[in-house]
């Protein structure tokens, strides 16, 4: 295995550098300042993805088993992601062909909702929190 720092720790170091040194230095340049904030946010996305992707891949796989028929989980982590991509291509084809127009649409919808929430847990967990708060207020 690799020595420390881990990938996550390296990303954290880069993010710290951007936040503490680059951001104050580019405050006068609106465009560069904005893009640096975007870059910092992108690193946060990557940090969360490193942490969550293995579990998300596993739960997505299980849901696809339920929808599209069971498949053995490959014992190679890299393979899981490439086969997941293939399985999603297959799912898209089936949706487009109308194979989920009937009663199966309910199970499909639950899967899509779960996958989308997992995507947002990586991309923007604050968005999910805000929505939960809003739903709490309005109900």
């Amino acid at each position: 295995m690799y020595d420390r720092p881990t990938a996550a720790e390296l990303i954290d170091a880069v993010r710290g550098h951007l936040e503490n040194h680059v951001v104050p230095a580019v405050k006068g340049d609106g465009k560069l300042y904005f893009q640096t904030l975007v870059a910092i946010n992108v690193l946060r996305v990557v940090e969360r993805e490193l942490k969550l992707a293995p579990d998300h891949a596993q739960s997505e796989w299980a849901r696809l088993d339920h929808l599209e028929g069971a498949m053995d989980v490959p014992n190679n982590a890299r393979l899981i992601f490439s086969i997941l991509h293939e399985r999603n291509t297959q799912l898209c084809d089936n949706i487009r062909a109308g194979r989920y127009d009937g009663e199966r649409k309910i199970a499909l919808f639950e899967h899509l909702m779960a996958t989308t929430i997992e995507q947002l847990q990586v991309a923007n967990p604050k968005y999910l929190q805000t929505l939960a708060q809003e739903d709490g207020v309005s109900s």
């Binding site: 893009q35 870059a39 992108v42 309910i106 899509l112 909702m113 995507q119 947002l120 990586v122 923007n124």
Partner: peptide, 28 residues
């Protein structure tokens, strides 16, 4: 080439969730 454009690829999930929520309200 732009980190801003790259980041939009993940922002799409926000619209994706909103789309699903609206469909749910209207009926699948």
């Amino acid at each position: 080439v732009s980190v801003e454009y790259a980041s939009l690829g993940r922002r799409s999930a926000e619209m994706q969730l909103e789309m699903l929520r609206l469909i749910q309200q209207r009926g699948l």
